[in-house]
Simulated assay, not measured.
Amino acid sequence: MSNRITMPVAVHLILTRGDEVLLLRRFQTGYEDGHYSVPAGHLDGDEEVVTAAIREAREECSIVVEPADVRVIGVMHRKSTDERIDFFVRVARWTGDVRNGEPHKCDELAWYPIHRLPENVIPYVRRALEHPQAGIWFESVGFT
């Protein structure tokens, strides 16, 4: 008999503007503080991936995103301190001005050229940002 596992599931928003991507620098979260990521969050119970992406866009970036403007572009099965599933979605259209909606968790929200990211982007996020150019849709990370 196999062990069934439950694990955290998160959605990561890849907001693009031309050849730039929106990054945030984590602050006072207890996880990867001082490092860059994309806006992201865990799915709430009984919540679809697209719905979670829309919610996170509103909470973290103060923008409104329509379901038709969210496209899943990748999935990562990842093991670090625990096992998780991460969905990566591209959002290229939204309503409103991007601004930091969670200054208690993020001390910078800025656009960066996708080919010149800051050195301290969280490694699995950097990998996910490189995947579309490499034609990769799924990856397992941290399993030996």
Rank of each mutant, 00 (worst) to 15 (best):
M1Q: 02
R4G: 01
I5A: 06
I5Q: 06
T6Y: 03
V9H: 05
A10L: 05
A10E: 09
I14K: 12
L15I: 12
T16Y: 01
T16L: 05
T16I: 09
G18C: 08
D19A: 12
D19N: 14
V21R: 11
L23T: 10
L24S: 12
T29C: 09
T29E: 08
Y31Q: 07
E32R: 15
G34Y: 10
Y36I: 09
S37A: 15
P39E: 07
P39M: 12
P39S: 13
A40I: 04
G41F: 04
G41H: 03
H42F: 07
G45D: 08
V49Q: 05
V50W: 03
R55T: 06
E59Y: 07
C61A: 15
C61G: 04
S62K: 12
I63Y: 06
V64L: 05
E66L: 12
P67V: 10
P67A: 06
V72E: 13
I73C: 07
G74Q: 05
R78L: 11
K79E: 10
S80Q: 09
S80E: 15
S80Y: 11
R84Q: 14
D86V: 07
F87H: 15
V89Q: 01
V91W: 02
A92H: 03
R93E: 11
T95R: 09
T95M: 01
T95H: 09
G96E: 02
D97N: 03
R99N: 01
N100A: 03
E102I: 14
H104F: 05
H104D: 14
D107W: 01
E108L: 13
Y112R: 08
Y112T: 06
P113F: 05
P113R: 15
P118R: 11
V121N: 08
V121P: 04
I122L: 15
P123E: 11
V125L: 09
R127C: 08
R127V: 02
A128Q: 02
H131R: 13
A134D: 10
W137M: 07
W137A: 15
E139F: 05
G142V: 03
